[in-house]
Amino acid sequence: MTDIAGADARRTEPVLSLRNVSKNFGAVSALTDIELDVHAGEVVALVGDNGAGKSTLVKILAGVHQPSSGTIRFMGQEVQLTDPGAALDLGIATVFQDLALCENLDVVANIFLGREAVPWRLDEVAMEVRAWTLLNELSARIPSVREPVASLSGGQRQTVAIARSLLLEPKLIMLDEPTAALGVAQTAEVLNLIERVRDRGLGVIMISHNMEDVRAVADRIVVLRLGRNNGVFLPDASNHELVAAITGATENAVSRRASRREAPRMTAQEEPR
């Protein structure tokens, strides 16, 4: 399976394929006619400004929200993601931006929530061992898995949420800003993990505001702007192009800021001694 990676992936049928997906919250059109393909063994980065609709799209694919219109095909079948259980059963795992952990339960209980080993006689030992294995794969820094999640730091919670998404061996994994709160080592681990998951032939959707991380692992970069598709880029696209697509203008706050920082340095260089 490992050879189905990178460019070869695009020739196979996509794992996930969205056509004309729209979502309205009352009068707000959060998403309009979104098209998106994710192939096996491919990392698709979803980027866009705050409020562009990235999380809304992820929640639709996780079965949390229902699309107002449009079709979703998963593994070649048209699917209705009526509730989160349906998405999980299909093999779509999600790390939500707000993590969606139960603070009153401990780390093991959170990782296995809804998927406990042996429903009528919980196997705490097996679950704890598996939890440690998952957490160690992520080089997690968690002192004890028997403490309630409320006592963990933001980054530790994020690691727990990521560990949970890996539990079920999903076919598609969606990470909504997975590295926002992570330390240097943990971010590197998550990026490594994304590559490992990709090499195992899974599809990955990753949302991030960090262009460096995006370039490092993404095979394609899909830009959303104000709830619409606004271009697809390869990771070697220039920063300027990406920023223009994200903000919707060549003249924007980012470019103005960049030129402001350039200008004094230029004058300093030109200054005669």
Partner: peptide, 25 residues
């Protein structure tokens, strides 16, 4: 304490939306 049902009860009481997103009915 020892069944999936009980775990789900505690989860729903702690964070209903998180429990729903974990696929709990």
């Amino acid at each position: 304490t020892r069944t999936k049902w009980g775990r789900s009860m505690i989860a729903v009481g702690g964070n209903r939306e998180a429990a729903r997103r974990a696929g709990i009915n």
